[in-house]
């Protein structure tokens, strides 16, 4: 039934939204396609699982995983982003990829390559409206994603930090001249971006009850697609793109077949890139860095 698929698509989309927002912060403000983000997504889910297995309470475990993701993001900033500011545009992309390989293989070496069952933390409670079934975990994910995005959007518009971030996104050199401390702002952005994506990983684990070393790849790459479809650097674009990708994926699985997902999702991305490279809600970029 289509209404149920729309609900499921929106819920999946909520997770893509968080990842797409993480990418869009890095691209829109720093012009940096940060390939470590799928790795941080995995750190969110897998880190929680590992810490819980060590006997930590779930709330502490989630906090610990988010903290780990933030710390790793600071390393990425130091080693991948800052060091390569004056070199070819592809360089930060490669070293951030190095972090993805590192994180995945660290888990591979310690936990193994199997899917690990994630305990059901949210009671198996289903909300029934008409014929629709909505799981509690789905509702929690959606609420958290919506709250975070609304908060981010307000933060960017209303606070001094938000104005500084937008200033750097607009023109880095001018922002520096106007007294923005880029050396402090950039690490903060990396931490924000890491928290969004790692939280996405936690919510994924809560919903799908499994984690693995490679859980970030498929989701992360679709998060990139969501970000571009919405428009790089636009927070609401990331929301729109994330929901569109989630819906496209769920609808193609149920009406065409699971193996067609990549054709529809990436086909959509390809068509959009050719017809409207700046994305649905984005402005055409003047200059870009890979």
């Amino acid at each position: 039934m289509i209404a149920q698929q729309l609900v499921n698509g929106t819920m999946l989309g909520a997770i893509y939204v968080l990842v797409a927002v993480a990418f869009t912060l890095a691209i829109g403000v720093l012009n940096f396609l940060n390939f470590s983000i799928p790795g941080l997504f995995m750190v969110g889910g897998m880190g929680t699982w590992i810490l819980m297995r060590l006997g930590w309470h779930w709330s502490v475990a989630i906090g610990g995983a988010l903290l780990a993701a933030a710390l790793i993001a600071l390393c990425v900033e130091r080693l991948a982003y800052r060091r390569s500011q004056k070199s070819d545009p592809e360089v930060p992309l490669v070293s951030s990829l190095g972090f993805l390989v590192l994180l995945e293989n660290l888990v591979l070496a310690t936990v193994g390559s199997d899917q690990q069952p994630f305990p059901a933390l949210v009671p198996d409670f289903n909300l029934r409206i008409g014929g629709l079934v909505i799981g509690a975990a789905q509702i929690i994910s959606l609420v958290i994603a919506v709250c975070l995005v609304v908060w981010l959007s307000i933060m960017l518009r209303k606070t001094s930090l938000g104005r500084q971030i937008r200033g750097v996104a607009e023109n880095r050199d001018t922002a520096i001249l106007l007294g923005v401390d880029v050396g402090r702002l950039v690490p903060q952005l990396f931490v924000f971006s890491a928290l969004f994506t790692a939280l996405g990983g936690v919510l994924f684990a809560l919903n799908y009850l499994q984690v693995s070393a490679f859980m970030g790849e498929g989701i992360g790459f679709k998060g990139i697609a969501a970000m571009i479809i919405g428009g790089m650097g636009s927070v609401w674009g990331a929301v729109l793109g994330g929901l569109l990708i989630g819906l496209t994926e769920v609808l193609s699985i149920s009406y065409i077949g699971a193996d067609f997902v990549n054709i529809t999702v990436y086909g959509l991305l390809l068509v959009l890139l050719i017809l409207r490279p700046q994305g649905l809600l984005g402005r055409a970029a003047a200059r870009e860095k890979l």
Binding site: N31, P89, F221, A225, L269, L273, I274, L290
Partner: peptide
Amino acid sequence: GIYLALATFALGQV
């Protein structure tokens, strides 16, 4: 630039 890289990325997937 980045759009080209991502377009080829999507193309490869398709």
